[in-house]
């Protein structure tokens, strides 16, 4: 079943196109990532899903509801963590949880959520006294309080330290295991690669690629990287001529050849043919980082 359906979404601000024909579908229980550089239209897209903005064109459905016109139905099934928002400065964590729980007919167990997000020791702390990471965890807790079927998380782990980040990630994974659909806006590659079932890469208001993390990495022109000690007597020209080779570079005493699966195979036969030893030989997969840079052209 489709949890979120976005078709031909358009949104402009003052005549400037921010979202320009974005379409995607998110299946129930899927973690769907939206990746992209700043200003690519990520937040605007999810704000249309959240009902905070009315699209200029196209259609959006969340669990079959139109966010623009069916607010009451939408808010009952949707949990939201906004990129930038605050709470009343002197509101305590416990009061915030009680307040937001009262908004829902069947709220989730506050104690359990607070425990899972490490908020239990801070229940009496006021919002203004919380650290950035604690605030972020509180907002994630508020997003989950209504036992939503769909959760939108915008810049989920910004401001969290590595340990807290990993804890939040495993929480998101457990949401998926419980059948909750997650729409995740991020610019953390590691986060997207670890969590997302599929990723849409947004660039200048359009989707430039939509695939699984593995699929996106496989698409890059340099999916594999071969590196070895620069001392090996190999002709750089011969390396450049390898099938699929994208680049050959030498730095810090190591030669790096970027290319594809085919390049690796050809490189191995080259070594055998020449009878050369390549010291400290290593073949590594490209990461989502490489794929992302390739797709959004932000390195150009």
């Amino acid at each position: 079943m489709t949890a979120i359906e976005v078709r031909g979404l358009h949104k402009s601000y003052d005549g400037r196109k921010v979202v320009d024909g974005v379409s995607f579908e998110v299946g129930e229980g899927e973690i769907f990532g939206i990746l992209g550089p700043n200003g690519a239209g990520k937040t605007t897209t999810v704000e249309c899903v959240e009902g905070l903005r009315i699209p200029d064109g196209g259609s959006v459905r969340v669990c079959g509801y139109d966010p623009a016109t069916q607010r009451d139905e939408l808010t009952r099934v949707l949990g939201v963590q906004l990129q930038e928002s605050e709470l009343q400065a002197k509101l305590t964590v416990r009061e915030a949880l009680d307040l937001y729980a009262s908004f829902y007919e069947r709220p989730a167990d506050r104690k359990e959520i607070a425990e899972r997000l490490g908020l239990t020791p801070h229940l009496r702390a006021r919002f203004a006294q919380l650290s950035g990471g604690q605030k972020q965890r509180l907002f994630i807790a508020l997003a989950l309080l209504g036992s939503p079927r769909v959760v939108v998380l915008d810049e989920l782990t910004t401001g969290l330290d590595p340990r807290a980040r990993r804890e939040v990630w495993s929480l998101v994974e457990s949401l998926r295991d419980a059948g909750v659909t997650v729409l995740l806006v991020t610019h953390f590659m590691e986060e997207a690669q670890r969590l997302c079932d599929r990723i849409a890469v947004l660039d200048r208001g359009r989707i430039s690629a939509l695939d699984t993390p593995g699929g996106l990495i496989g698409r890059t022109s340099a999916a594999k990287e071969i590196s070895f000690d620069a001392g090996a007597p190999l002709d750089p020209e011969a390396l450049r001529a390898l099938p699929g080779a994208v680049s050959v570079a030498t730095a810090d005493g190591r030669t790096v050849v970027a290319g594809t699966e085919e390049t690796v195979a050809a490189f191995v036969s080259l070594l055998a043919r020449e009878g050369v030893m390549a010291g400290q030989l290593r073949v590594t997969d490209a990461t989502l980082d490489d794929a992302y840079l390739d797709l959004t052209g932000t390195d150009r």
């Binding site: 009902g51 905070l52 808010t75 906004l82 928002s85 605050e86 009343q88 829902y104 508020l142 209504g146």
Partner: peptide, 9 residues
């Protein structure tokens, strides 16, 4: 704060 609340019922 109002914006956050508008995403709830």
């Amino acid at each position: 704060i109002l914006r956050r609340m508008s995403t709830t019922p």
